[in-house]
Computed example of a mutant assay.
Amino acid sequence: MASYSRTSSGWKAQISFKDTNGDFRKKTKSGFRTKADAQAWANEMEVEKNNGGTLASADILFYEYFEDWYELYKSNLRPASYKNYVINGKNLKKYAPNLLLSQINRSTYQLLLDDFAKAHAKGTVKMFKEETSAALRNAYADGLLKIDPTINTINKGTDTPKSVNSNFLDSEDILKFTSYLESGPIDTETFIYYTLLLSGLRYGELCGLRPKDVSVDTKEITVNLQRLTRAPFTTSVPKTEESKRTLIMPERWFNYLGKYRRTVGMQSEFIIPLPVSNDQAIKHLRQRLASIGIDNKTITLHGLRHTHVSWLLSNDVDIHYISRRVGHKNSIVTQTVYAHLLTEHVHRQDEKVLDIIG
């Protein structure tokens, strides 16, 4: 049975069929001027299918094949993970709008990766390459490609620490910002900023925090859930066991929490009843920082998590403790992400050793 939807480029039609292996597949075509045109194409495909024709073809735009592939094989992923495939589908359409699957070989695929890498960091290119390569290997396995075009392709994304280096506050700015938050009116956004700074939580983890996850007696909070920060605000368990954790919090945070709860109400299942969108929270974070003389135009909510780690490292807190506190899988992850800060940490340790043995 065919399905139809309107897109920015016209009408899109999609039909289901069984391939030569007996597996269900989807064939999609978009860009039809009218719904009737889309229906006419779908009818042609249905006739071909009923006459024993093979609908699986390499004469399909690569981005359309990619969309069909992730809709078929990745629909059971967590919403946040699935969204990455949707984003990279849009990236494919942007960077290779006219590239047919049949035109892809190792050279054309490497050129696509190189083009994408010109404007993206290595981590972003890595995910783009992993997801598109998986789709291409699937096409090769189905006989739609004669060779595997992903072999020996490389990632030429910019290898820069910009994502962390410019995405945190220094010690002086931390003190200035926490003082600003503690002395001013309390709302959901200020509570978000304050908590991320003092805890190192991920934003989704903070949004999943419930009153029963907070212990005033032991001064601890426990991470058991993460929550989407956009509608429908669904919850899920953290991806790794290490992300499920309990961490100590200072007395001043509990005082701030009490004031916040009295402001927003105490009846919600979650401490943050309605999450603020990530874009809005970042925009207002930068505006608030600018209002107190902190000029950081690249800081993000995740940057407050980076700030928490850098704050602890600058005060010589053990790297293994930090890794457990922020929910990293192991301390190697922490060391990799914060390598530039660890260099300073090692220098301070060297000075201590020389003081002892000198």
Results as ranks from 00 to 15, higher is better:
M127Q: 10
L111N: 15
N105M: 09
A96T: 06
A117Y: 07
Y85E: 08
A121W: 00
D142V: 00
T132N: 04
N105R: 12
K118G: 04
A117T: 09
L92Y: 10
K126H: 13
K122G: 02
D142Q: 02
Q110D: 05
S102P: 12
G143R: 04
N91F: 08
T108E: 02
K129G: 05
F116N: 01
K122Q: 11
N98E: 12
L112G: 00
R137D: 06
N98P: 07
I104M: 14
G89D: 08
E130Y: 06
L111P: 02
S133H: 00
L101E: 02
S107R: 15
L92P: 03
V125P: 05
F116K: 01
G143F: 00
E130P: 01
M127V: 14
N105L: 12
E130V: 08
V125M: 01
K94A: 10
N91Y: 11
I104D: 09
D115K: 15
L112M: 07
S102E: 09
R106V: 14
R106A: 15
K126G: 01
D142I: 00
H120Y: 06
R106L: 10
S107H: 15
N98T: 13
M127T: 12
T124R: 10
D115L: 13
A119N: 06
A117N: 07
Q103Y: 13
Q110M: 03
I87C: 11
K90I: 11
E131L: 13
T108Y: 03
A121V: 10
G123Q: 12
L136A: 01
G123S: 15
T132I: 04
G89T: 10
K90Y: 13
L112R: 09
P97L: 09
M127D: 06
K122M: 06
D115H: 11
T108G: 08
K122E: 12
Y109I: 07
A134P: 01
H120M: 08
N138F: 14
H120W: 08
H120V: 01
H120R: 03
K94Q: 14
N98L: 06
N88Y: 12
H120I: 02
L100C: 08
V125K: 02
L101F: 06
T108Q: 08
Q103P: 10
N105G: 13
A119F: 02
V86Q: 14
Y140E: 10
K90T: 13
A119Q: 03
Y140C: 05
G89S: 11
S133T: 04
N98C: 03
E131C: 05
E131D: 09
K90H: 14
V86K: 13
S133I: 05
A141N: 02
P97Q: 07
L100V: 04
L101A: 07
Y140K: 13
